[in-house]
Simulated assay, not measured.
Amino acid sequence: METNINNPVKHNGKTMAGIIIVIIGGLLLIDQMNLFFIPDWLISWPMAIIAYGLYMGAKYNFKKAIWVWLIVFGTACLLTDNINDADRVVWPMAIIGLGAWMVMKHSRHAGDQYHEPTYKA
């Protein structure tokens, strides 16, 4: 017998999307049949945004920032929907976090681009 440890199976984006759709469909079916208790927040639009963010991260090997944005936005919406008066704290913290991320990202790139001028005598 021969094993293919060195050649892992590669999944493309369509395969991952299909797997996610099958999981979502299975959760919806279980919820409709009342087989198990599934919390309401688990099957909601903020969780769909979070799942899509994870999908986008996996699709681009977590190199593009869009997955972070989607997960943060979905989490903020999930918290404000399920915790009383959370919107008073969550959205200002999200805005502060966004500003801090922008400052840190731009200051890091600015330091990379700066070079001391060299003068020839």
Rank of each mutant, 00 (worst) to 15 (best):
45 W>K: 04
19 I>Y: 03
5 I>C: 08
24 I>M: 07
18 G>Q: 05
36 F>I: 14
43 I>W: 05
115 H>S: 13
33 M>W: 05
50 I>G: 05
72 V>D: 04
55 Y>I: 08
116 E>D: 11
66 I>F: 04
41 W>N: 07
32 Q>N: 14
37 F>H: 12
13 G>H: 07
63 K>R: 13
86 A>D: 06
90 V>Y: 02
108 R>F: 14
64 K>T: 14
104 M>N: 10
41 W>M: 07
94 A>F: 03
64 K>E: 12
107 S>I: 15
44 S>P: 01
77 C>I: 03
100 A>P: 02
66 I>A: 07
102 M>A: 14
11 H>L: 15
16 M>G: 06
116 E>V: 14
14 K>V: 11
77 C>M: 11
13 G>V: 12
75 T>E: 01
55 Y>W: 01
37 F>N: 10
13 G>D: 10
85 D>Y: 13
99 G>D: 02
72 V>I: 15
99 G>K: 08
63 K>F: 02
40 D>Y: 06
72 V>H: 04
43 I>E: 01
56 M>E: 11
68 V>H: 04
59 K>P: 06
110 A>S: 11
112 D>L: 15
33 M>R: 09
99 G>I: 15
81 D>N: 12
98 L>H: 10
6 N>S: 14
84 N>F: 03
48 A>N: 04
34 N>F: 03
47 M>P: 00
27 L>E: 06
120 K>W: 09
50 I>H: 06
42 L>N: 00
64 K>D: 13
106 H>V: 10
68 V>C: 02
41 W>Q: 03
93 M>I: 13
61 N>K: 13
74 G>F: 08
99 G>N: 10
83 I>L: 04
116 E>K: 12
114 Y>T: 14
69 W>T: 14
21 I>R: 02
35 L>M: 09
85 D>T: 08
90 V>R: 00
83 I>E: 10
15 T>G: 05
97 G>H: 08
52 Y>Q: 06
86 A>Y: 05
30 I>T: 11
8 P>S: 04
112 D>M: 15
75 T>C: 02
12 N>I: 05
30 I>H: 07
83 I>F: 03
98 L>K: 00
55 Y>G: 00
10 K>Y: 06
51 A>V: 15
46 P>F: 06
17 A>F: 08
53 G>D: 01
101 W>S: 15
65 A>M: 10
120 K>D: 12
66 I>H: 03
59 K>E: 09
88 R>E: 14
41 W>Y: 12
15 T>K: 01
84 N>S: 11
28 L>M: 11
4 N>K: 13
58 A>I: 05
23 I>P: 06
49 I>S: 01
6 N>I: 11
29 L>D: 05
1 M>Y: 09
88 R>G: 10
35 L>D: 02
38 I>G: 07
107 S>P: 07
12 N>C: 09
26 G>K: 06
110 A>I: 11
105 K>I: 09
61 N>I: 02
110 A>F: 10
47 M>G: 01
89 V>N: 02
39 P>K: 05
83 I>G: 05
57 G>D: 01
62 F>S: 00
94 A>Q: 08
49 I>T: 04
73 F>P: 00
100 A>Q: 00
10 K>S: 11
64 K>M: 07
50 I>V: 13
79 L>P: 03
